[in-house]
């Protein structure tokens, strides 16, 4: 072929052929061949991140349990000390009683106070349990929402992979299969991000629960203090300490 002939041949080459060769062969050319390996890589990446999330959840749960145990231990320790202190007051009052009536009055006061302490502590324990139960529900609810979003994400990926595999088996052009597959993966990712964005934070709800519990504790405290003072007033009269 002469130089002129070569130039004419190039000039007459179809433009559509040039367009086809502009698609990177390394990307779509072997797409169907390496689809299985790509699926394995996707599954592996997903598993790794979900495992990390699960480990973090376990760590968070352990931290929360540890904090609660610390609060519980503090309450138990303080209550034991208050029991000791209260008994010292009872003993001092008993020494002031010089008649059988006065002794009986001190005994009544003691039983009344012990009953009030029992009620007070039960009320506070109940408020704390209610708070913790609701807090656990908030955490679990949020985790369920996240789990659903991730499960949907996995289903979308799996569906995309099946569709791509079927298309490859049907002889569809690999670049077409790849374009569809990549688009489906992008949609799945977008749907996941959107779903996670709709999961509400629990911070304000936890604080609201804490406020409710604090109000219950304060009410119990007021009731306890008022009842102890009333019992004390009765005892003062009996012991002539007015």
């Amino acid at each position: 072929m002469t130089g002129l002939g070569l130039m004419l041949a190039v000039a007459s080459f179809p433009a559509s052929a040039l367009a086809v060769t502009s698609v990177p062969m390394t990307t779509s050319g072997g797409f169907c061949t390496k689809l299985s390996a790509d699926e394995t890589a996707i599954t592996s990446g997903l598993d790794n991140r979900i495992n990390t999330m699960d480990k973090n959840r376990t760590t968070h749960a352990d931290n929360l349990a540890s904090q609660r145990a610390t609060f519980d231990a503090t309450v138990v320790k303080n209550r034991a000390q208050w029991d000791t202190d209260r008994q010292q007051n009872f003993t001092a009052l008993q020494k002031k009683a010089t008649t059988s009536d006065e002794t009986a009055a001190v005994g009544t006061f003691e039983q009344t106070v012990l009953g009030l302490v029992q009620t007070h502590r039960s009320t506070i324990d109940s408020a704390r349990d209610t708070f913790r139960s609701a807090e656990d529900q908030l955490i679990a609810g949020r985790q369920n929402q996240v789990n659903t979003a991730i499960s949907d994400f996995q289903s979308s990926i799996s569906s995309s992979e099946s569709t791509a595999q079927s298309s490859c088996n049907a002889g569809t052009t690999q670049s077409t299969v790849r374009t569809t597959f990549v688009g489906a993966l992008k949609s799945a990712r977008s749907a996941l991000v959107s779903a996670l964005g709709q999961v509400r934070p629990i911070a304000s709800a936890v604080k609201s629960l804490a406020a409710t519990r604090t109000a219950a504790v304060q009410a119990a405290n007021s009731d306890f203090t008022a009842a102890v003072k009333a019992a004390g007033a009765t005892l003062k009269t009996a012991l002539h300490q007015t």
């Binding site: 991140r49 968070h60 949020r142 996240v146 996670l196």
Partner: peptide, 22 residues
């Protein structure tokens, strides 16, 4: 108790990291 809000998989970014699986 309750003054510190418990951590979640969203607050620590664990869930969001799932989207970077591929």
């Amino acid at each position: 108790e309750g003054a510190v809000v418990p951590q979640t998989d969203l607050s620590t970014g664990s869930a969001q990291n799932v989207e970077t699986s591929y």
